[in-house]
Write a protein that binds this DNA or RNA. Structure first.
Lengths: 122, 122
DNA sequence: CCTTTCTGTTTACATCTGTAGTCAATGGAA
DNA sequence: TTCCATTGACTACAGATGTAAACAGAAAGG
């Protein structure tokens, strides 16, 4: 069971999933292009993630190098599951239906998903 | 933009979406079959939802009748959108792919979704 | 050597959440 | 009329979260 990751923490994880290991400063540099957090904030988030054992630390002289300990896929799977369970009674179909009705699905999306499903069956 | 609804609040909303208007006690009775919350807790959650203008109140003598002010569909659409945006870069296909890979999709699910997509195109 | 600069650690603090307890008014039972 | 049960309002309080400042040790520059 992966520990819960908050929204802000998730931003940090995305950076590390894209590239790692990174120092706190490097993470901050990446993240700052999106959000406007101070270096301190990024450090706090990294500590919290380290405490949760979601990122690992490796000493490099006087500083740390941070890397994810949880794979993005594993994490996403868990989160998706919880999401679908909570809002759609565990069924994916209503979710897709919903996104479709809300015009969130383009024709291309539909084609893509159909293709995907075909592969799944094959 | 619908105000953020917390997990506990969402439970309450589900009850009201199923049936409304209801008194606090009635909501508590419904909800208690699932969760084990005290009446007080339910009342607090109802107040918070009322403050956020997500449920409306209508006086009925000395008590209130509560009803949702936000449609379930609208709410779900918003939440789904945010979810897909945040975790899958706004694309639904990766989400479906993900659920599929995690064996979350049964053959029946796949058939259902295909059917749904067919209708969408038609 | 002393001062500045990195970097992690500690502390802070407001807001949100989950989960109630308490209070005061009020309406119904006796 | 007196008292109890019901109901909303107010208060509480710990843990999570977002957002950081302050501090302390080390490294590097002068």
């Amino acid at each position: 069971m992966v520990e819960r990751i908050s929204d802000a923490e998730h931003e940090i994880m995305e950076v590390l999933w894209k590239q790692s290991p990174l120092t706190a400063t490097e993470v901050a540099d990446q993240v700052v292009t999106e959000k406007d957090w101070s270096l301190q904030t990024v450090k706090t988030l990294l500590s919290r993630l380290a405490t949760k054992a979601v990122v690992g630390t490796e000493r490099d002289g006087r500083r740390f190098l941070y890397s994810p300990l949880v794979e993005r896929d594993i994490y996403l799977a868990g989160v998706s599951r919880k999401f679908v369970d909570r809002l759609f009674g565990g069924k994916v179909t209503p979710l897709v239906a919903h996104l479709a009705e809300a015009d969130e699905l383009s024709v291309d999306d539909i084609r893509e998903i159909e293709e995907l499903l075909r592969e799944l069956k094959g």
